[in-house]
Nucleic acid binder design. Structure first.
Lengths: 222, 222
DNA sequence: CGGGTTCGGCCAACGCTGTTGACAACAGCG
DNA sequence: CGCTGTTGTCAACAGCGTTGGCCGAACCCG
């Protein structure tokens, strides 16, 4: 009697395809996200997806838009410093789990709706902090580059290679000839600190720089 | 007499293969760098390359090592601030022209010789600046993440999409509904400033942060 | 109620990718 | 001379994104 399913055996739509795509990405990694696998996850022919998305880039772009929508939904803006910090942390998480987003978004000519909402909020926070228009845009791009770039880079760095890859490199640095590599040998035990600490340091550094620039501008105006 | 070519019609070695690979990357972009094209550039069968490189990642890693070797050769270290700045600018140039390097290097378990030399120099400059061992490593990773991440991100951002893609986005931001997107509309004309300015701002910001941290540590010790 | 149109899933296929294994020609060596 | 290891060639495999044709079901309109 085909209960439930409206009428046809298995109608596809963009939302269920996105669900399947996220499921595939979850279990196969970002390199394992392939149209054929998405089709299999849906129990449908892979090419059926092309009736709902023009190509793979558009599918990935839609995935990114959904995730960024969730980000902006869960994090209302408050004071500029906390707002920017939260946004950067969430952005990093997204790009780190899905490094393919960067390329797909870059290939898409128009920004997606939720990306525009994020841009709106970040620009607003930067102006609220007291930056001039030019500086606000400058730091906006700096933030985007830092968050997306670092996120993607961290992702490709730690999904490749065997686990405990850091230990291995630490040891190989410690074993370098001490005459030509004194610093590598000496600092080998400290290498690869907590990645969150590294990222957070960069974030606070950026926020401090914004504050300093606002202070300097106000001082100059006085 | 088969002048030049030692004896066999076209003997291959790692260096000439690297030359061919760079030639292909130059004219076909980083996505057009394929083993078949490298073979064609050499006038040889594509699979002949596999006699000299285990796989494509090893080939790309060797390309990266050659370029980084050139970087470290041409830029002797001097004062810490200039040394770090030059290194970051050169690193960005490399990653921007060859964003594929990041993934290949990440997949390679061992660092290449010239990457170790660069790590040695950067760590030395950070210690020369006066950072403690822990901070030196922290900023080392911050620098690597910023340079590689931003470089790769800039590369994928501007080789995709049509030219004058920025103008297009600027216009679309300016055309957003002003009630919901006041900041996007107001700042649209300033969007996408000179990418070099954005990157340089980040560099100086990092260098200032290093200097500030050194100053604070010395003050605390007093 | 009937017929035309559109939608959407299926299937076969194209061109491309990285990579492998068998084969053959050549080099150096005893 | 013959043996052995190197290295270029060839055919092939599995996988990828994507396209065009087919066709049944659903919808619209008279």
């Amino acid at each position: 009697m085909t209960a439930g399913k409206t009428r046809r055996p298995s109608r596809l739509d963009r939302e269920s395809i996105l669900d399947a795509a996220f499921a595939v990405a979850e279990e196969a990694g970002h390199r394992g996200l392939t149209m054929r696998r998405v089709g299999a996850e849906l129990g449908a022919d892979p090419t059926a997806v092309y009736r709902h998305f023009r190509n793979k880039d558009e599918l990935i772009t839609a995935m990114a838009d959904r995730l960024f929508g969730g980000v902006i939904e869960h994090y209302p803006d408050g004071p500029w410093r906390e707002g920017l910090r939260n946004g950067m942390l969430m952005g990093r998480r997204v790009y780190r789990r899905h490094p393919g987003f960067a390329e797909a978004l870059a290939a898409t000519p128009d920004d997606t709706p939720n990306l525009e909402r994020i841009a709106e909020r970040v620009l607003g926070l930067l102006r609220k902090a007291g930056l001039t228009d030019g500086d606000a845009v400058l730091f906006y791009h700096l933030i985007v580059n830092y968050v997306a770039g670092t996120g993607v880079f961290e992702a490709v760095a730690d999904d490749a290679g065997e686990p405990s890859w850091q230990d291995r490199t630490r040891r190989s640095y410690a074993a370098l000839p001490p005459d030509r590599f004194p610093n590598c040998v000496a600092l080998a035990p400290h290498m690869y600190p907590d990645p969150n600490l590294v990222f957070d340091t960069g974030v606070e550094l950026l926020l401090d720089a914004i504050e300093a620039r606002v202070g300097r501008a106000q001082e100059g105006r006085r």
